[in-house]
Design a binder for these strands. Structure first.
Length: 601
RNA sequence: GGAGCUGUCGUCUAGCGGUUCAGGACACAUGCCUGUCACGCAUGAGAUCGCGGGUUCAAAUCCCGUCAGCUCCGCCA
């Protein structure tokens, strides 16, 4: 359906005088020319009604066998999804025939003349029933699915977000500069899509995982601030919120601190909300450190729309006779818990399932305690807890009758993460999450490094150009995992919708980071030598952020998959059911690209 | 790479070992109908049950494999 403040007049063309969603009482008596798709034909014998549809809405056409014989006869042959144009007069409907379910329902078009532009085969599914049609059918016939109100609204909403973003950044002095799609492998961790070079035998371009290096180079070049609505490519497995090609609002600014980037982005979101959803957004957003986020929510993308916060109860079990707890504490671990109200909801099976979830998240196990009406602990481990421990636990957590306490004893991160997963699981299952709420939070002070998959090796948590936090920089040699970074993520309703950092602009520090990452000189030179070289010619302090356009639009529309906000998405196996890509290519094309297929079928 | 769910006329689905080689709804076709808007009425066409194999006297229905779609883990900011 149409824009809130649509200007109908700009749609007038040599084919039409008005749009289908336009006719109302103010146009009564006027002759109009309309174009559109046949949404529905209702044939009453000597009288035929046709609902004509375009993107703006639906209007009822009336064909009378007496007043326009030619058009009436033609209307007999009309079927759904034919594209036609009609000339007719807007006429008021009698009171009892008014249709209150459509905006044009008080009037109708008495057709005098009609032309069929294009016939249609019987469509594979009806637009009215589109909601109950399987997604693969919708994807195969995407051009029909896209005719639906829902898809039109989704993509028009996305357009409005993009437009608001462009306007906003323009007003803040940003320059939109395009960067190469045929690029070189970027240092982010994902697998690259490769494009063979015909001219340079045996060499490949990589599609950009993001414009990261290019936007930084534009800072080196003195543009001060740039942004881009950028297509990015990552050859990894798909999810409901991940496609191999996706869109980022990607920006970079010179002479800025974390604070400056955050301010600009909060202003952008405020504009998006007021212009696109009509809602007033409260800024500044809440900010929590990565440490706080892990401690309280067990995740680096916390959902703050509900409670179920994680509480530390290590101190209660320091000298516990329950070895499962005390031994974890002895080796430096901790004991974490969450309290869930109304434990009656959870059957033994639910609890067993939760134990499985905790173990699946890497925890050694999960202890659950149900409090009955008399505040008695019901739990497989109740007999191992002393009266004193029960008392202190009850007081510390302010436990009430009917509460369920979930406890994980393990290393700090494992305990928190396991409970974090359970926290979202329970919130989801218990309907604690209300639709229509938009909860933003910044997570900052990420660790600069994390332990990599390879034993003993560290990898950058964000990317290797992220500037360390000055306060913790002193640990860089002795305990690099302790070093914090000037990186930040923006989280909306528990989903990461963007992340960025202030970048390193000191060559010595940059080289230090590379050496910690155990990157050899050759490797550095090979991967981003051009970038390092550019850093040698005077570069400003700078930083930026990238926001996931698809995810943002999906969340604002309260949808569950980004495929709903992408015109031509791919399936989970990265295939386009519409176009059939990817596909084989001819021998000639392979020869030109200097590629020989390995025959291991 | 792994786990789970799904796969029956165009669409959505019923059937889950034998009067069902498949029933319904919508769509479709033909005819009738001047006020419908989920129009109505009548008649009709349309599925070898994703594909391959097996078990059985008998399979849409059970088993194995395979393909496709979805959700998730791994992977990926």
């Amino acid at each position: 359906m149409g824009e809130a403040d649509m200007d109908f007049s700009s749609y007038v063309t040599s084919f039409r005088s008005n749009l289908c969603g336009e006719p109302d009482n103010s146009l009564i008596g006027q002759e109009v020319k309309l174009c559109g798709w046949v949404n529905k034909r209702r044939d009453h014998g000597k009288l035929i009604f046709i609902d004509l549809r375009d993107f703006s809405g639906i209007v009822q056409l009336v064909f009378d066998s007496k007043t326009s014989v030619h058009s009436y006869k033609l209307a007999k042959t009309i079927r759904n999804e034919y594209v036609i144009t009609v000339t007719g007069v807007i006429r008021k409907r009698s009171v009892e025939t008014i249709n209150t379910s459509i905006p044009t329902g008080e009037v109708e078009v008495a057709v005098m003349d009609m032309v069929i532009f294009s016939k249609s085969k019987t469509p594979p599914f009806m637009l009215d029933h589109r909601d109950s049609v399987e997604e693969n059918t919708r994807l195969k016939y995407r051009y029909i699915d896209l005719r639906s109100d829902q898809m039109q609204e989704n993509l028009r909403m996305r357009h409005r977000i993009t437009q608001t973003v462009r306007k906003y950044f323009d007003s803040k002095g940003f320059v939109e500069i395009e960067t190469p799609i045929l690029a070189k492998s970027t240092p982010e961790g994902a697998r690259d899509f490769l494009v063979p070079s015909r001219i340079n035998r045996g060499k490949f371009y990589a599609l950009p995982q993001s414009p990261q290096l290019f936007k930084q180079i534009l800072m080196f070049s003195g543009f001060d601030r740039v942004y881009q609505v950028a297509r990015c490519f990552r050859d990894e497995d798909l999810r409901a919120d991940r496609q191999p090609e996706f869109t980022q609002i990607d920006l970079e600014m010179s002479f800025v601190s974390v604070e400056d980037v955050i301010n600009v982005i909060e202003g952008m979101f405020k504009d998006i909300f007021s212009h696109v959803t009509g809602k007033e957004l409260n800024i500044p957003f809440k900010r929590i450190t990565w440490q706080e986020s892990m401690e309280n929510y067990g995740s680096d993308k916390p959902d703050l729309r509900y409670g179920l916060n994680i509480r530390d109860i290590s101190h209660i079990f320091k000298k516990s006779g329950f070895r499962v707890f005390s031994s974890v504490l002895e080796r430096g671990g901790c004991i974490k818990s969450i309290i869930v109200k109304d434990s009656k909801r959870f059957s033994r099976k639910d609890l067993d399932n939760m134990v499985g979830i905790a173990k699946g998240s890497g925890a050694a196990g999960l202890v659950w305690i149900k409090l009955d009406q008399d505040m008695k602990f019901q739990s497989p481990v109740a007999k191992f807890l002393s009266d004193d421990e029960i008392k202190v636990l009850t007081e510390t957590l302010n436990l009430e009758a009917g509460d369920l306490v979930l406890i994980v004893a393990d290393d700090f991160l494992i305990s928190c993460q396991a409970l974090g997963v359970l926290r979202t699981h329970i919130a989801d299952k218990s309907g604690l999450i209300k639709d229509g709420e938009f909860n933003f939070v910044w997570v900052y002070e990420f660790p600069l490094f994390e332990l990599g998959s390879e034993e003993g090796k560290i990898t950058p948590m964000h990317h290797p150009f992220t500037r360390p936090d000055n306060e913790t920089l002193e640990y860089i040699d002795n305990d690099p995992l302790k070093v914090k970074s000037q990186a930040y993520d923006i989280i909306l309703n528990g989903q990461e919708i963007g992340g960025g950092s202030i970048r390193i602009n000191d060559m010595k520090l940059q080289k230090k980071i590379f050496s910690l990452l155990e990157l050899s000189e050759e490797k550095i030179e090979e991967n981003f030598g051009f970038f390092i070289k550019a850093m040698e010619y005077g570069i400003p302090p700078h930083g930026g952020i990238a926001l996931g356009m698809d995810r943002l639009t999906m969340i604002l529309l309260n949808l569950k998959s980004i495929r709903e906000v992408i015109a031509f998405p791919k399936t989970q196996s990265a295939v386009s059911l519409l176009s059939g890509s990817p596909s084989g290519v001819s021998e000639k094309q392979l020869r030109e690209a200097n590629i020989r297929l390995v025959d291991d079928m």
